[in-house]
Write a protein that binds this DNA or RNA. Structure first.
Lengths: 222, 222
DNA sequence: GACTCCATTACAGAAATCTGTATTGACATC
DNA sequence: GATGTCAATACAGATTTCTGTAATGGAGTC
């Protein structure tokens, strides 16, 4: 089992709850906790420098800004930063988020190892998740695997996300074309972008760009 | 002080926490709790029918669907439903939400009496809020009153919200014009709508409709 | 090589958006 | 009554969006 774990969660109650579960139900005792994102990062860096690395990070996604100045506002950045230094660290996200698309993004883009949804069965799920991740598995929350939405999930590649992002920022297709050309991203003709976006219209049953952006914002993809 | 209070909050820990605070710090003992929105509504109805009405509702905004079938998914509907029956009931919202615009909407549109942000100082804030509301005040969370954003808040009237809502659903201005005409809402020429939306562009510094909708979605106005 | 399949690109036209200017009418002030 | 203000409306044009069709070229199959 994991011998050293870092828990990043800003609510003290939840924080203590996680530690208690790891302690009592799984038998992990070497646990460090952090209530702030920056704090978690510093503890990680220290352990890494001291050659006593954490094997598992359990983190929330959203951190309140609080009084302390936070450079990292979200757990996503924390994961990226930590993974850039120690790519093999296992990561479990423990969050309120329950939108399938957003959770899907975490697995696809951030390559997290497990996800536990804050809820009524969080304790059981957390135990199963930690054990599964330790065995090298990717552990999806039951909300997702049981949900048919996950199966009919619309697959979005990097370009789709870029287009959605640019559109949501109000750039015209001409501007986007120029941007893509500058960054040497392959399909960069206006008509090709049109085609892509039209496909997104179909996928999300959107009437126009504005509707599309509203939908993906609601789904939490952006 | 309030003698009978209804607490609607789906997380058991938070639920118990609120009750404990009301008990220990304020001396309210006649408290009923509900973990589901529908449950809260039924308890309210029963009390109302029995002529032993609740004087205060403390409710979360978002409720998990859980296994139980819920007709009311959000606390907003719960507040609306309860207020339609007992308009003078005091309402305090206790939620994770910290976006000024959304909180502002709660006060402006739902006429809630107080708001407490789930966070590190929630206990103190809750006590102050309940006491303030009991004295007939409207109690805003310190996050908002201290925040300059609240002062520079953009004021949106009903029409603005309607327009944003329709636009986000992908309706064209022609369609919106027809809809408004049908509902006898006053400015319903396409150019007047254009003007309104242009003003929203200025207010939110949006480049176009798509950008505008993305911004207000992020702000939580929609 | 001939063929299909598929993604990119090009082009074109109808519809919608966005940005001006101008007119009207209601309302208040002097 | 004259004046100014403001919102609603009308109109116009330049730009952008959206939706077609068609041409091009690469990758794989026979």
């Amino acid at each position: 089992m994991f011998s050293k774990v870092l828990v990043a969660e800003d609510y003290e109650i939840a924080n203590q709850g996680i530690i208690k579960v790891l302690n009592d139900k799984i038998g992990i005792h070497n646990i460090e906790e952090a209530k702030y994102c920056d704090d978690a990062y510093l503890k990680f860096r220290k352990a890494h420098n001291d050659q006593e690395v954490f094997e598992l990070l359990i983190t929330d996604l959203s951190f309140r800004e609080d009084h302390k100045i936070q450079t990292r506002t979200s757990g996503i950045e924390l994961i990226k930063d930590i993974r850039s230094i120690q790519p093999d660290i296992k990561v479990i996200v423990y969050s309120q988020e329950d939108r399938p698309d957003k959770i899907n993004m975490l697995f696809e883009n951030l390559n997290i190892d497990g996800y536990v949804c804050k809820g009524q069965d969080a304790i059981q799920e957390l135990v199963a998740c930690v054990q599964g991740v330790y065995q090298g598995n990717t552990v999806w929350p039951p909300e997702i695997t049981n949900n048919s939405a996950a199966n009919t999930m619309i697959h979005l590649d990097d370009l789709d996300i870029i287009l959605l992002e640019e559109l949501s920022q109000g750039f015209t297709k001409k501007e986007i074309r120029i941007k893509l050309k500058k960054q040497n991203i392959s399909p960069n003709s206006e008509s090709a972008i049109d085609k892509r976006v039209s496909k997104l219209f179909d996928d999300f049953k959107a009437k126009n760009t504005t509707h599309l952006v509203a939908i993906v914002k609601d789904l939490g993809i952006l």
